[in-house]
């Protein structure tokens, strides 16, 4: 008798629905979470669609080879060849400046300093440096290069971008080097390799895909930067004239033309956006390919 009573109460317990309040709360929260997630995706989709919709009609060979047309002239070829070149030029300068420092700092953090106080300090400073607003890097480059040379220039722009790239390269290099198993270092050392040989021939060589991934991500970030270039490289309607003259860039061109009264300039801003996003995308895809190569080696 007692047994069947227990069975019965157990059965009702198991089949008893949750209270109305708790059910509503569950469903309501799930609904809200999904609506908010949808809202998060909305701008992204809208931005990408708009870039495609506005950018594609004007996308032709012409934009890659011509200079920007003078204001108000609609019958001459209109393009951003100089800006494209300027962006590549300044990102190149930035890479040349930041990669040696960044990679070496990454090597220090992962191979030499490891858990020492000095390394923790440098790592911390690098993380903080990584979060310095990009316009501050621009102000710094303005003070260092523009004020000293009395000239807005590609070098100043490249310097500003290098300040932004450096901590990124350093931190991603450290991460990539840390992924190399310690047993590789021990194997090299047990064959008599010194720290230089072990680091370069084994550790860096094994981590090269990872380092490249980090580098490409830094390049992609630098290519899209605008604020620091506004006060260092300025802009230009002409081809780059040496490293020490104002230089056009894709991002600054987009900014300058965004509020233009001339429709063809706004059009060009959208097309430049499409090309810039394309460049960033290609770099990111390349970096993912490198990352995949790394996982295959493992």
């Amino acid at each position: 008798m007692a047994k069947s009573l227990l069975d019965k109460s157990l059965e009702t317990e198991l089949h008893q629905p949750l209270g109305v309040g708790r059910t509503l709360f569950s469903w309501g929260m799930t609904g809200i979470a999904f609506i908010l997630t949808g809202m998060a995706l909305l701008p992204l989709c809208s931005i990408l669609l708009e870039i495609l919709r506005q950018g594609i009609p004007n996308l032709g060979w012409e934009v890659f080879v011509s200079l920007p047309a003078p204001q108000g002239m609609t019958d001459v070829p209109n393009g951003f060849a100089n800006a494209l070149l300027g962006t590549i030029l300044m990102v190149g300068i930035a890479s040349l400046l930041s990669v040696p420092f960044g990679v070496m700092t990454g090597i220090f953090l992962s191979e030499f300093g490891k858990t020492s106080t000095i390394a923790s300090g440098i790592r911390f400073i690098t993380v903080i440096l990584n979060s310095v607003p990009s316009i501050i890097a621009g102000v710094f480059a303005y003070a260092i290069v523009v004020i000293t040379t009395h000239q807005f220039s590609a070098v100043a722009g490249g310097f500003a971008l290098a300040v932004l790239m450096l901590p990124m390269v350093a931190l991603t290099t450290e991460e990539a080097l840390k992924l190399v198993p310690t047993s590789m270092r021990l194997a090299s050392a047990s064959l008599g390799g010194n720290s230089f040989q072990t680091t370069f021939r084994i550790v860096v060589a094994s981590a090269l895909p990872g380092i490249t991934t980090g580098l490409l991500l830094a390049v992609a970030r630098a290519a899209g930067e605008t604020a620091p270039l506004l006060l260092t490289a300025l802009s230009s309607q002409k081809w780059p004239d040496g490293l020490f003259s104002p230089t056009a860039s894709m991002s600054v061109l987009i900014y300058n033309y965004a509020n233009s009264p001339y429709p063809e300039q706004i059009q060009l801003a959208w097309t430049a956006s499409l090309v810039l996003v394309g460049m960033v995308c290609i770099t990111s895809i390349l970096s993912r390919l490198f990352a995949r190569k790394r996982s295959l080696v493992r």
Binding site: A220, G224, E225, T226, Y255, A258, L276, V277, V280
Partner: peptide, 9 residues
């Protein structure tokens, strides 16, 4: 990954 100048545009 989208440059903020494009978000601004």
């Amino acid at each position: 990954a989208i440059p903020s100048v494009i978000v601004g545009l």
